[in-house]
Design a protein around this nucleic acid. Structure first.
Lengths: 202, 202
DNA sequence: CAGCAAATTTGCGGGCTCCGCAAGTTTGCA
DNA sequence: TGCAAACTTGCGGAGCCCGCAAATTTGCTG
């Protein structure tokens, strides 16, 4: 990867980071594109070369991870059962459950929690993860030999994985005392794989 | 319901309908708020009294249905198993599967399909259904005796239902020959309830 | 290492969005 | 019938987002 592309990724990360930090500090509405650009040391116009909106910039960091789940899934042996492979893929991206892993400082998570409560970001989240989910749909279709145009199955699986990431992230922000995100993800995937049985009947 | 509220609902529906129709005709970017307002016979400023954006106006009609699933779920006897009750609730809102039900004209569905392919609307969709999903989460929590703040379960179920509506709607638009939306919804919910088993192993 | 082509950044301009505010209009009720 | 509450509307303004073209930076090649 040449200097050019490295610098681009660096700028993109700086913008996304600045956007998230400023939004946590001042609230979603209290930050303008101009400020984000200034914080990252580029012109406001350049901001829009990287992101179509400030919302997109804010969610980019998180979604960059989910985008790699499909890649990981493709590296798993096709002899593994689907849900085993899928769980492993998610683990590879988000980390293995480790109860001792410390969470980020409470000040930060409470700020992020407030942010994510904003509906604009929920929407942006899904919008941005649509690409990742499409990739995942394709990977699941290959692995299971289904046709994504005719069968809903691969899209339902991808949607379930996306929902798991979404719900687990929320729970992670809400958890008191803090819990490792990886454990929550594991749990959510397990419940999906079990068909979300009514806990009363267990 | 007084004349006042009836007129409000009428205006809201007219705006949403005008927004959808114009967007199908000219594409999402090719329609402005001014045109939508003119089409509905109100001032541009009034449009924003009803909807915060044109995207919100477009998806409102569809989401108005999903918003009532939680209400329906609450009317089902608590002796019914959760997934039975949930499927019934969805059926009550979206109709019972009827293979003979004719779909809308191909011209319209292809237009809507193009619209929904736009990521902006995907995002708006979820954003708008977040409220409905929160309601559904609460209803599921009551029924299953779980605590939505501590257990991910009710939120996972609500997310699954939302994903079912989403994926089934997509498939409905894509289906050729046309299929009834209700059948697809039924199918999607069934798959979720079964834990999305790998079709190879069936 | 000079110099060129391609990629990137930047400023400018413009159309559009969304909202607060206050004045005007309609509705429900007594 | 008349008044208070609710709704609509125009205005003004801050901000967003993008196309365009000029300026700058980078990677490559002779």
């Amino acid at each position: 990867m040449g200097l050019r592309e490295r610098k681009k990724e660096q700028t993109r990360a700086a913008l996304s980071w600045a956007a998230l930090r400023l939004a946590v500090e001042r609230g979603l509405a209290g930050v303008t594109v101009d400020e984000i650009a200034a914080e990252a040391g580029v012109s406001p116009r350049t901001f829009n070369n990287y992101f179509a909106s400030k919302y997109e910039a804010i969610v980019w960091r998180h979604l960059d991870r989910f985008a790699h789940v499909a890649d990981q899934l493709r590296t798993r042996p096709t002899t593994d059962p689907l849900w085993t492979a899928l769980t492993d893929a998610v683990r590879a991206v988000f980390g293995t459950p480790d109860p001792a892993a410390p969470g980020p400082p409470a000040e930060w998570t409470s700020g992020v929690r407030l942010l994510l409560a904003q509906l604009e970001l929920r929407g942006e989240f899904v919008k941005a993860s649509a690409t990742a989910e499409r990739e995942l749909t394709a990977a699941v279709a290959e692995r299971t030999g289904t046709d994504p145009d005719r069968d809903m199955y691969p899209r339902l699986v991808a949607a379930a994985a996306g929902a798991a990431v979404q719900v687990a992230s929320e729970q992670w922000l809400r958890a008191d005392p803090p819990v490792a995100l990886a454990s929550l993800l594991d749990d959510a995937l397990r419940q999906f794989a079990a068909g979300l049985p009514d806990p009363r009947s267990v």
